[in-house]
Design a protein around this nucleic acid. Structure first.
Length: 271
DNA sequence: TTAAAGAACATTGTCGCGTA
DNA sequence: TACGCGACAATGTTCTTTAA
C-alpha cells in the first residue's frame, strides 16, 4: 500500500501533512452514544490495527490520550476514555476529524487533527480540567494495560515505610465488589491516604499487575485491575494474604502473598 | 461484506448505613 | 472512628442484529 493512502470517507485537507496513512471521517452518533469509535476495517487491517487488543495513543499538538483498542466480530473499536476525548475536543455528531498513523509499534500512536473550521480556536480553549489528565508517552515504561507484564520497571525513589506490610483475609465483598480495601493505619503510615495513582502488584509467580489505587468512600482501596489479579491468582473468600509494600515511589509496588499462612510468616510480625 | 447500531453483561466509582 | 458491606449509577466490553 501507498504510504500515504487515504481511506474511505476521506478527503483532502489543507493545513495538515498527508505523508502517512490517515483516516478522515465525520463523527458518528454512536461514537458519542456508545463511547467508542469504530475503525473502518480496511484502515484497521492496512495499518495493523485489526485483531489486536492493546493500548493505543491518540495525540494532538499539545496533549495525548490513551485508549483501549480491541476487535470484535471483524470490526475494530477504540474505547476506554473515548468519551473523555470527545468532551475534551468538544466533538459532536457531524464534526470532521482526521487520524494519522504516527506509529504502528506495540502501542500504536495516532495523531489527531480537528478539521472543523474553527479548529485552531477550539484547540486554544481546551478544557483545563481534562488537560490535567495529560500524560507523556515518554512515561515510566510500565505496562498499564492491566495485563501481566513480564517485569515492572521500578522508579528509584522509596520513602520510609512505617508499616510496609499487613496480613488480612479475603472478604466476600473483595471478590463481589472487585476492590481490596487497605487498612487505614497501613494507608496512613505509608502516605497512601490521598493518593490516586497506579500501583504495581506482584504475585508469587513474579508476575506484575497494574492496578489502580485510590479512595473509595471512607477508605483507600485497590480498584481497577483487582478483578484480573483475583482471577489469575485464584484468590478466594477466606484466603489469608500478606500485602507487602516493596517500593513507595511514584508508582508504588507491592507484593501480594496469596494463600499466606502463619508458617510462612513465623518470623514476621503481623500488624 | 461491512459499518452501524442495539443490547446485554461486566467492571468500576461513589455514597451511605450499620456495627464493633 | 474504622471497617464491612450493600445499593446504585456510570462506564467499558463484547456479542448480535440490521441496514446499506
Amino acid at each position: 500500500m501507498s504510504s500515504h493512502k487515504v481511506f474511505p470517507d476521506a478527503e483532502a485537507s489543507k493545513d495538515v501533512p498527508l505523508g502517512r496513512p490517515h483516516l478522515i471521517s465525520a463523527v458518528k452518533p454512536h461514537w458519542i452514544s456508545r463511547s467508542l469509535m469504530h475503525v473502518p476495517k480496511l484502515f484497521a487491517c492496512k495499518n495493523g490495527l485489526c485483531n489486536r487488543k492493546c493500548t493505543i495513543v491518540i495525540r494532538d499538538e499539545q496533549r495525548s490520550w490513551e485508549f483501549r483498542l480491541y476487535s470484535c466480530g471483524g470490526s475494530t473499536f477504540i474505547g476506554g476514555g473515548w468519551r473523555e476525548f470527545c468532551a475534551a475536543n468538544f466533538l459532536k455528531e457531524g464534526d470532521r476529524v482526521m487520524f494519522e498513523i504516527f506509529a504502528k509499534a506495540e502501542k500504536p500512536i495516532l495523531k489527531f487533527y480537528d478539521l472543523r473550521a474553527n479548529a485552531s480556536l477550539q484547540t486554544e480553549a481546551k478544557n483545563p480540567d481534562l488537560d490535567a489528565n495529560r500524560y507523556s508517552t515518554q512515561g515510566l515504561g510500565i505496562d498499564t494495560s492491566g495485563m501481566p507484564a513480564t517485569k515492572a520497571r521500578i522508579p528509584a525513589s522509596t520513602s520510609a515505610n512505617a508499616n510496609p506490610q499487613f496480613i488480612s483475609t479475603i472478604r466476600p465483598y473483595s471478590i463481589n465488589r472487585t476492590f481490596l480495601y487497605l487498612p487505614l493505619d497501613f494507608a496512613k503510615s505509608n502516605g497512601l491516604m490521598n493518593r490516586r495513582c497506579e500501583m504495581i502488584l506482584t504475585d508469587e509467580k513474579q508476575r506484575s499487575w497494574s492496578v489502580q489505587l485510590g479512595p473509595t468512600g471512607h477508605h483507600v482501596a485497590i480498584t481497577r485491575g483487582w478483578t484480573k489479579f483475583v482471577k489469575a491468582n485464584d484468590v478466594q473468600v477466606g484466603d489469608t494474604f500478606k500485602f507487602e509494600l516493596i517500593n513507595n515511589g511514584t508508582i508504588p509496588i507491592a507484593h501480594f502473598h496469596c494463600k499466606y499462612s502463619e508458617k510462612d510468616g513465623k518470623n514476621e510480625r503481623s500488624i
